[in-house]
Structure formats: C-alpha cells, structure tokens
Amino acid sequence: MKLVSVAALADDNVIGIDGELPWPSIPEDKRQYRERIANDPVILGRKTFESMLDDLPGSAQIVLSRSEREFDTDTAHHARSVEEAVEIAESLGAETAYVIGGAGIYDLFQPHLDRMVLSRVPGEYEGDTYYPEWDEDEWELESETEYDRFTLQEWVRSDE
C-alpha cells in the first residue's frame, strides 16, 4: 500500500493558523484535493477530523488519537499509531491511503511516505502550523503543474 501526503503550504511551510488556512480560499486547489482523495481512506488527526465533520473527506477516515475514541460516523476508524493506521487502511482493501494532517500527523508519517502531493501557495503567511521539513536528497520532484494561485508538486521518494 502507498502512503501519500497531501497538503497546501506556503513558501515558509506554513499550513495553518488557528485551525484555518492562512491565505484566502483557492477553490481550484480545494477541488483537485477533494477529487484526489475522494475514493480512498484518509489518515488524519482528531482535531483535523473534528474540523471536517460537516464535509468528511475520503472513503473512510482513520483518526489517529492517543485516547480511545468512538465516532458517530460509520466511516471513521480509530488508530493509536502509524502502524495501526496502515493496518486499518490495508484491512479496507486500500491500495493508497492519503495523509491529510494536521502538522503532528504529517510529522509522524513523513518517514513512511511514498509520495507527497503539495499545493505550493506563493508567499509567506503568518501561521502557527507547519508542514515538516524533508530531506530533498530522499525525494524526487516527479511533476509540477502551474495553476492560477498555486503550483501542484508531486514528489516521490527516491530509491536510493
């Protein structure tokens, strides 16, 4: 199974402030993001899950949380670790699971990722949440597509 991180980040790796995006909404980015993850399970933290309850992403949500949780959503599953989250995704028959945040979840999964799909929003923004740094020697930029207000980059882990 492939683990793919999906995030929108500014030039300084800022991804959020007070639980919101730090830049004005970019509908085209939201659309491509939602389409990409629609048919596969997503892995996310509890706060991110709770912030998306009105419009849950993915075919199933694997919520990483240290505390035992029950969810009022049939598609939500609780996981206590990276390994358990991967086991749950595999038990759902997934070929791909998307890691969609928040910052702590991105950080936990960074060493395990096969790919990163990053919407790069130009500029620097005030924020309190950051996408983790990564060693570019371990990654290869596979594609880069320019859009009106962002650039979509697809990174694959190098085979070295």
Score class of each variant (00 low, 15 high):
residue 4 V to E: 15
residue 5 S to K: 03
residue 11 D to I: 04
residue 11 D to N: 10
residue 12 D to G: 05
residue 14 V to S: 03
residue 15 I to D: 01
residue 15 I to P: 01
residue 15 I to L: 01
residue 16 G to H: 00
residue 19 G to V: 08
residue 19 G to T: 12
residue 20 E to G: 03
residue 21 L to M: 06
residue 27 P to L: 10
residue 27 P to F: 08
residue 30 K to A: 10
residue 31 R to W: 09
residue 33 Y to L: 12
residue 36 R to S: 02
residue 38 A to K: 15
residue 38 A to I: 06
residue 39 N to Y: 06
residue 40 D to R: 03
residue 41 P to F: 01
residue 41 P to K: 05
residue 43 I to A: 12
residue 44 L to Q: 09
residue 44 L to N: 05
residue 46 R to T: 02
residue 47 K to P: 13
residue 48 T to G: 13
residue 55 D to S: 11
residue 57 P to W: 09
residue 57 P to D: 09
residue 62 I to K: 02
residue 65 S to T: 03
residue 73 T to A: 13
residue 74 D to N: 11
residue 74 D to T: 11
residue 75 T to A: 06
residue 77 H to K: 02
residue 77 H to S: 01
residue 79 A to G: 00
residue 80 R to K: 05
residue 80 R to I: 04
residue 82 V to S: 02
residue 82 V to Y: 01
residue 82 V to K: 05
residue 84 E to S: 02
residue 89 A to V: 03
residue 89 A to M: 08
residue 90 E to G: 01
residue 91 S to C: 06
residue 92 L to Y: 01
residue 93 G to C: 13
residue 95 E to M: 11
residue 95 E to A: 14
residue 99 V to C: 06
residue 102 G to L: 07
residue 102 G to A: 10
residue 103 A to T: 08
residue 105 I to F: 14
residue 108 L to S: 15
residue 109 F to R: 15
residue 110 Q to P: 01
residue 112 H to E: 07
residue 113 L to Q: 05
residue 113 L to H: 13
residue 114 D to C: 03
residue 114 D to H: 13
residue 115 R to A: 14
residue 115 R to K: 14
residue 117 V to W: 00
residue 122 P to S: 12
residue 124 E to A: 14
residue 128 D to K: 00
residue 131 Y to P: 08
residue 132 P to V: 00
residue 132 P to E: 09
residue 132 P to W: 09
residue 133 E to Y: 09
residue 135 D to P: 07
residue 137 D to C: 05
residue 138 E to L: 13
residue 139 W to S: 07
residue 141 L to V: 07
residue 143 S to N: 10
residue 145 T to H: 13
residue 145 T to G: 04
residue 146 E to Q: 15
residue 147 Y to T: 02
residue 148 D to E: 08
residue 151 T to R: 11
residue 151 T to V: 11
residue 153 Q to G: 05
residue 153 Q to E: 12
residue 153 Q to M: 06
residue 153 Q to Y: 04
residue 154 E to I: 15
residue 156 V to G: 14
residue 158 S to E: 07
residue 158 S to Q: 06
residue 160 E to R: 14
